[in-house]
């Protein structure tokens, strides 16, 4: 069930477009943000009803972009480490194994306290500041092991 607040947000987003279904990406993002960083099948169904399209169209959009989390639940902070060419050359793999160790999980997993989920992403268009990662909506660039430790500690402290 979508909350009143989310429904209101979707209504606002729809105002930016001529056609109902053009709001699909914004609507999905609003739902994901409001429901603990995850999208369920029921959410997609609900969005489909609002936008008056077949649910499979919503599923296809959500499935195309790595920013929508629907395959399995993710934690509060979704860490996506870029492992495409530039980032890999500058040590992405090293950062990944470091985080695997410190978080105690392997790629694709979520920490037991549901705080972090560690996944990879293809080029995030920030090669100039490689290696880099995205957590939630934010980019973290020119990474080193030390920087990563601090970022994770800060996030944990903030939550």
């Amino acid at each position: 069930m979508l909350t009143e607040k989310t429904l209101e947000k979707i209504k606002q987003i729809q105002k930016n477009y001529h056609s109902k279904k053009s709001a699909v990406m914004g609507a999905l993002m609003a739902v994901q943000r409001d429901s603990g960083n995850n999208l369920t099948r029921e959410d997609m169904d609900a969005v489909a009803k609002i936008l008056d399209v077949n649910p499979v169209e919503i599923h296809a959009v959500a499935g195309f972009y790595t920013m929508y989390n629907w395959k399995k639940p993710v934690g509060r902070h979704h860490i996506q480490v870029c492992w495409n060419l530039s980032c890999s050359l500058l040590g992405a793999e090293h950062l990944i194994s470091h985080m695997e160790k410190t978080l105690g999980i392997t790629l694709g997993e979520t920490t037991p306290d549901s705080m972090f989920t560690l996944t990879t992403a293809e080029c995030l268009g920030s090669c100039g500041t490689a290696p880099m990662m995205q957590i939630g909506d934010d980019y973290y660039e020119d990474l080193t092991v030390e920087k990563v430790d601090k970022i994770l500690a800060d996030l944990r402290a903030r939550s």
Partner: peptide, 10 residues
Amino acid sequence: GVGVLGSIGR
């Protein structure tokens, strides 16, 4: 005109 199929994933 039914549209129940989609391309899921990439």
